[in-house]
Design a protein around this nucleic acid. Structure first.
Length: 642
RNA sequence: GCCACUGUAGCUCAGGUGGUAGAGCAACGGAUUCGUAACCCGUAGGUCGGCGGUUCAACUCCGCCCAGUGGCUCCA
């Protein structure tokens, strides 16, 4: 009998009789408890099933419950089980397409004439539980590709056939659990009994292979965990996200609204939301002025010729609204601010001594978004970018990018975002500019990031056609990420508009232009802020900072006086002097997420004070009006960092 | 744009199989003057998303349109 030597990555080799399986080897290498946690293994950087046969000396890294890899395998296997369940319930009416694991769960795409209803979910879940109880093993086998095509063809599984036809390998692997066979690379769980804590979440349309010209499939989403608690936690998190939904809070807190009469994707800011926005805008403007920017205002429409010159009609017309005619000349609504800033630039002869020129504008733009893409404040048709354009020489590029990153992270931090993912997008296939340009500017972006000590991922080929870019995705309180900031190098527009400056050599040169937006769009950013803070904004940009609540009418007059003083003192104050019980008023202020309630009864009236109740329900000792103003002022300055 | 679902008072929602609508909260009026998350009584409020069709009769059935939601695609 031959023996082979197997070992864990950190462990000593152990001899086992050959042939054995991964599971067999692990039985020798791990304690029983550890062994039970194994669902698959990694060998030579390949994930394999536990029943994979071993005939050579091998180092085995077990994939155990608790790891991300194990979870992914669980999710993938669960997708298969769901497909099996759907197959058994709906028979040949259903064609299966693909079913991968995704972040937080899995999905499977099906073709079926009838729509799946949420009622079907229950049946599918029941069937899945049945399959789980049966502890069906997932068995892998390899099969000749052409044979596989025949098999799946015979079953009418045209999507599988299509996939197979595109594969290049001669032999492919298939997995079977019970009667269900699926084309799959694997690995899978040893058997279906691991699949207990799952839930189907929703059904949605999806194009076959993501192509809108192909069949529309029904995609059923679900999630699954190894542990019931984990599942519960995730479902709770979904609930929490629902509570924080900016559309819901926006309505409840009266921040913004939309109306049929006005049109989809067009936001009406209510007074509270407008106040919030104004505070953000003011802060933004101050911060930009401080960091060497000048502020611009530019129009909302321009002659169509401008958009021809800029190239937007060629590259961006799908997102632009139709032209309008004014005095027999065509004009078009702006989707971007850059051409206008260039207009300001070109209004004078520019010298290298002026560089870098940093111009910022809260510029409102209009872009056509397909109806199905609209979403609350996050995806709209009219929005205000916190835009800026920097004109500089190539040798200033890196430093400017560095400065932008600096300001960018500073502003995000002030708003409470200090975790983010950064992406550097490089040259796409369709692009303009010389290789030199691309290389130099990409390097400038890289170096600025490195100098700032920021980790980043490269998104190959995801740059804009006119230059490379840095995107920053911020993470909110629930760990969800949102794309807001973008920094883009552009050597196309200066060319198109013949933007130039006189250098030290008294000759004309072409500057480089940087486009950047930090919050992205105010609409989107505020949407994210609402969800991040669940509507309970920090005092410095809370639309209302405090509300005065009297106990009885006897304090009404005093409250009016307090109100006037606070308002004059710069506090964003409201009063609730209605003839209602204190409990009632407190509840309402609490629901409105107002940071401070100022409670005024006889005691306070006598002593010329207010009692401060904080949003968390705790009370501060009574304080004078001046003290409260000072307190608010101090807190705002602390939070805003100035 | 595509697939599915949804659209009833300001808000949240009820209204088998067709006979023109209700509740709670909010609003308004009254009573109460009450110290840390909803006091009581009363009043008013809806062309049931819009248009068209079937029908003696449609919130309920059919068609088209509009809007929203979940995704896909797109965008970033």
């Amino acid at each position: 009998m031959t023996e082979i030597s197997v070992r864990l990555p950190e462990g000593d080799p152990v001899s086992v009789p050959s042939p054995t399986t991964v599971a067999g080897a692990l039985a020798e290498l791990l304690s029983g408890k550890q062994r039970k946690r194994c669902v698959a293994a990694t060998i030579n950087e390949m994930q394999v099933d536990l029943d994979t046969e071993l005939t050579e000396d091998t180092t085995i890294s077990p994939i155990q419950i608790g790891s991300d890899e194990a979870l992914e395998i669980l999710r993938h296997s669960t997708a298969h089980v769901m497909a099996q369940a759907v197959r058994e319930l709906f028979g040949d009416d259903v064609k299966v397409a693909i079913g991968p694991a995704i972040e937080n769960g899995f999905y499977y795409d099906f073709y079926r004439d009838e729509p799946f209803s949420p009622d079907d979910f229950e049946k599918i879940e029941e069937k899945m539980t049945e399959i789980s109880r049966a502890a069906l093993p997932f068995t892998r086998s390899t099969i000749n590709r052409l044979e596989a095509i025949e098999t799946f063809n015979a079953q009418g599984e045209k999507y599988k056939v299509e996939l197979l036809e595109e594969l290049e390998d001669e032999t492919i692997s298939i997995y079977q659990q019970g009667p269900f066979v699926d084309l799959c690379r694997g690995p899978h769980l040893p058997n279906t009994s691991f699949i207990k804590d799952f839930k189907l979440l929703r059904v949605a349309g999806a194009y076959w292979r993501g192509d809108e010209n192909k069949d529309v499939l029904q995609r059923i989403y679900g999630t699954v965990f190894f542990d019931k608690k984990e599942l519960k936690k995730y479902l709770n998190q979904l609930e929490e996200a629902k509570k924080r939904d900016h559309r819901k809070l926006g309505k409840e807190l009266q921040l913004f609204t939309t109306q049929d009469e006005i049109g989809p994707g067009l936001i009406l800011w209510q007074p509270k939301g407008s106040q919030l926005r104004r505070l953000i805008e003011d802060y933004w403007k101050d911060e930009h002025y401080r960091h060497g920017y000048e502020l611009l205002y530019t129009p909302h429409i321009a002659r169509q010729d401008l958009w021809k010159t800029s190239g937007h009609l060629d590259f961006y017309s799908e997102n632009m609204y139709a032209s309008m005619e004014i005095d027999e000349v065509k004009y078009q609504l702006k989707p971007m601010n850059c051409p206008f800033h260039i207009g300001v630039y070109n209004s004078n002869k520019r010298s290298y001594r002026e560089f870098p020129i940093r111009w910022a504008e809260l510029g409102t733009v209009y872009r056509y978004e397909r109806a199905g893409a609209l979403h609350g404040l996050l995806r709209v048709r009219g929005f205000t970018q916190d835009d800026a354009h920097i004109f500089c020489r190539e040798d200033q590029l890196e430093e400017e990018i560095f400065n932008i990153l600096d300001l960018n992270l500073h502003i995000l931090k002030t708003f409470g975002f200090s975790e983010y993912d950064i992406y550097l997008s490089t040259r796409p296939e369709k692009s303009v500019g010389t290789d030199d340009h691309w290389e130099q500017s990409t390097n400038a972006l890289k170096q600025a990031l490195e100098k700032k000590g920021l980790g980043y991922d490269i998104d190959p080929g995801e740059g804009v056609f006119y230059g490379p870019k840095i995107d920053i995705k911020i993470k909110d309180q629930l760990g969800r990420s949102w794309q807001c900031s973008t920094i883009q190098v552009d050597f196309n527009l200066p060319e198109r508009f013949d933007v130039n400056y006189i250098g030290a050599d008294n000759k004309e040169h072409r500057p480089i232009m940087i486009h950047r937006a930090l919050m992205g769009s105010l609409e989107r950013f505020i949407g994210v802020l609402i969800e991040h803070y669940a509507g309970a904004f920090p005092i410095w940009f809370a639309p209302t900072q405090a509300r005065i609540l009297n106990i009885t009418d006897d304090q009404a007059e005093y409250c009016e006086k307090v109100y006037d003083e606070l308002r004059k003192g710069g506090v964003r104050i409201e009063k609730d002097l209605r003839n209602e019980k204190l409990n009632y008023k407190i509840r309402e202020a609490q629901v409105n997420k107002i940071p401070y309630m100022l409670i005024v009864g006889e005691k306070e009236k006598e002593s010329g004070t207010v009692t401060v109740r904080m949003r968390d329900g705790k009370n501060l000792p009574p304080m004078s009006i001046e003290e409260f103003i000072e307190k608010i002022d101090q807190e705002c300055r602390d939070q805003r960092g100035n």
